[in-house]
Design a protein around this nucleic acid. Structure first.
Lengths: 333, 333
DNA sequence: CTGTTAGCGCCTTCAT
DNA sequence: ATGAAGGCGCTAACAG
């Protein structure tokens, strides 16, 4: 069954296609009766507008691209939900891209989104495609960075206070009387990894505790790294008394290792983490965690983007919004 | 910076736009030298094709719409990941829609996807928009149902063996010597709710156990329902010895209630569930669960869809694919 | 207030 | 092997 076009409606209503267009888009002056006539014709014909044709002409797709690492990570699925909720509210749709933290995939996605003429993109960048991302901005397509940020890229960003949250978390550990504090953290080429580690060092320094390089494990922000790192820490001749694990995936792996080694928390090891997935609260003992304002980050990012889209002319300075995380003290520390 | 078009490339290469188009799409006969010439011009000009224009002309968007209940539910985020992986492999992109199990939203999304001329859709349907979904199919836009199915809709579907998996799970409970077995399940208007409940009844019947209506809690597939239902079960004068909770959200709520009531699993209550989220394996005791082949469902659905898209003419019969779940026995039973 | 017209960027016969 | 021309469905001047 072939789609009906604006032409069919025009014929049915006995008016010109421009009149139909005017009625459909609700601008210009249209006679009330004509308006009625057209609306009835739309019904009768069963007309549905062709967004592709409209986009080609109007140079707006009402679509935004979202590139995340891993939609399975609750951080990103919650963020996606927030963005989607906001997008819907404003009449936008979401093109979802799962980069898998792979910069090659990211590049392909960026090209795809460019060709599809999205009105803007929200991205948790791998960091490897700075120039390509920049070309969006130069073309007038707004870009909002979330979660992490590419240094030197002049684009908006919405992130959490990684450094100070980590700082505060580690300070709490110290307050509880621990000095031998380990850190499991992700690569230092992305800002989350870097900032969380910096927070850790600041807290140690401020309390005159020497950082012990044996206690610092840097790897990927994933389960395997967490598992391996924790095993290494536990097999140290002089193991740490506390550990701060810097994201939920690593923490899951680390927790597995803790269990396999029959280490009791918090009596043998104080355990706390960045992120607050379901299992953190359900674990026995429940895990002290840094809870990111993920939904809010998503909402803010989406609103910021849509705002940009609607004011492309006004050359505002990039916004760098930092929303505070909350530390949730539970029983593991 | 204005986008370069095929025209700019043509001018640069000193050929016509149709030759450029031929080179870009790799069909027809083009002289090797001309080919070179055009490719170089593409580079020099910095040309990127406009997918919108191409779609308008070619009537294909290389885009598929995905409508799920709740991207936060790991079942759906994993499915989304699978679909996305497959889509990427075949050069398709994903328009993500989060219906929130709300049929009004679902309707709006369906309209939006129709207007955006997606090549096909994958949907976990609420069940309330049968006619609208059917209109896609009538227009030649393939639809694949996942997770659940609308009765009487002539469309492909990829689901798990809800009935027999539930049947087997409950049979296992019975084998373990329990007779007072409760069920917490979602609404019976969607097939997952219905089939899982049917499986429960079959297992009881086959073992000559009378179903006790006090033990059967039907509500929404969400955390609150699970929590409330479990509380009610536990406050029964004659509480059940075992419970089968029919999805991960409900199970989370139910587990909360179990804990608040200081009920010990499995000594006081045998607990098992449909779905296998992170926390099920990590819980103490670990939870016996029906693990759906979620990734596989997503992959199959995407492949089926893409296949349909490429063979729109061939009027094949709808496929109803059922992929078996796996029961993972753990310590909670 | 309404109709005519000119494209948006691309693909695709149809000539040559 | 290449070019010219029409049109996908729609919006937005521009006339009237």
């Amino acid at each position: 069954m072939k789609d009906k076009t604006i032409k069919d409606v025009a014929k049915k209503a006995g008016v010109s296609i421009s009149t139909v267009s005017r009625v459909l888009n609700g601008y210009g002056n249209v006679n009330k009766e004509t308006n009625e006539l057209v609306r009835k014709a739309v019904e009768e014909v069963g007309y549905s507008p062709n967004a592709i044709a409209r986009s080609l002409r109007s140079r707006s797709t009402k679509t935004i691209g979202l590139i995340v690492n891993n939609i399975l990570n609750p951080i990103y699925s919650l963020m996606a939900q927030a963005i989607e909720d906001t997008a819907r509210e404003y009449g936008y749709q979401l093109l979802l891209c799962n980069s898998g933290a792979n910069s090659e995939y990211e590049k392909v996605y960026l090209d795809g989104l460019y060709e599809k003429k999205v009105d803007g993109i929200i991205i948790a960048p791998t960091g490897q495609n700075k120039e390509k991302i920049n070309s969006f901005i130069k073309s007038g397509i707004p870009v909002i960075q979330v979660d992490r940020v590419i240094e030197g890229l002049v684009a908006d960003a919405v992130v959490t206070n990684n450094r100070s949250a980590a700082y505060e978390m580690v300070s709490r550990i110290i307050e509880n009387g621990y000095k031998k504090i380990a850190l499991i953290v992700g690569v230092q080429t992305i800002t989350t990894g870097m900032e969380r580690m910096t927070g850790y060092f600041s807290a140690l320094a401020e309390n005159n505790i020497n950082a012990n390089s044996e206690y610092i494990k840097v790897g990927h922000f994933d389960e395997n790294t967490g598992f391996d790192a924790m095993n290494e820490l536990l097999s140290l001749p002089n193991p740490p008394e506390a550990v701060f694990v810097c994201n939920n995936l690593m923490a899951k792996g680390a927790m597995m290792a803790v269990r396999e080694n029959n280490i009791s928390i918090p009596s043998q090891l104080s355990f706390c983490m960045f992120d607050d997935p379901d299992w953190a609260a359900m674990n026995v003992p429940s895990i002290t965690a840094v809870k990111q304002p993920t939904y809010e980050i998503g909402t803010k990012a989406a609103k910021l983007l849509i705002n940009r889209v609607n004011n492309q002319n006004k050359e505002q300075k990039p916004v760098h919004e930092v929303i505070d995380s909350k530390i949730i003290i539970r029983d593991s520390m």
